[in-house]
């Protein structure tokens, strides 16, 4: 029931928001068309501005992924994963999630294909995917758009959030599904 409401909501939300904003602006006698165009002009500029930041971030991540460093890291981390009760099959997900959206999506699909979506590992890996965002993409794009290069504690805070998200996913899945 909640599921259906949520799914419907996510579909009708955008048209509803658009209609509400346009209607309210019209009521307030805002020159709607002109105002929209004036705002939309920024779209190109923002997209171009983030390119260098995105190239820097994605290339570094690409090198890291292609090099096979991930496999080495997974092996090194196996004892720690074992200690906290994390199945070794989901360790790559925990490491990859903050780095790449498409990469972790592929990894989630691959892991579920191998172990079955309704197995403990399948549920855990999809929960982990849903428990976080691609931290480094968000940092590159958001800071890039306003030319911020001294990011202070942003990386640390983002990675702490990721780590807690991954551990939270593990905890809840262990509690509910064994």
């Amino acid at each position: 029931m909640i599921k259906v409401i949520l799914q419907t909501l996510s579909i009708v939300a955008i048209p509803l928001i658009i209609a509400a904003f346009v209607a309210y602006a019209a009521k307030k006698k805002v020159p709607v068309y002109e105002s929209f165009v004036a705002g939309a002009k920024g779209g190109f500029e923002v997209a171009i501005k983030i390119i260098p930041y995105l190239v820097a971030m994605l290339v570094a991540i690409g090198i890291f992924r292609a090099s096979g460093a991930m496999e080495i890291l997974v092996k090194l981390l196996a004892p720690i994963a074992n200690l906290i009760g994390m199945p070794p099959q989901v360790v790559p997900m925990a490491l990859l999630r903050p780095l790449t959206g498409s990469g972790s999506l592929g990894l989630m699909a691959d892991t579920m294909k191998r172990y079955g979506p309704d197995s403990f590992i399948g549920i855990l890996v999809s929960t982990m995917y849903g428990s976080s965002e691609t931290t480094f993409y968000v940092l590159a794009v958001y800071f890039g758009a306003v030319n911020i290069y001294r990011t202070r504690h942003a990386v640390a805070a983002g990675l702490i959030a990721d780590a807690v998200g991954m551990l939270g996913a593990l905890l809840i899945c262990r509690l509910l599904f064994g």
Binding site: I17, F21, S35, A38, A40, G43, A47, I48
Partner: peptide
């Protein structure tokens, strides 16, 4: 980045409306 241009322009337009109103 280029793929973002269209959607970005659209939502920035809507945001401007919402700000102006």
């Amino acid at each position: 980045a280029l793929g973002l241009i269209g959607v970005m322009a659209f939502w920035l337009g809507i945001m401007k409306l919402a700000e102006d109103s």
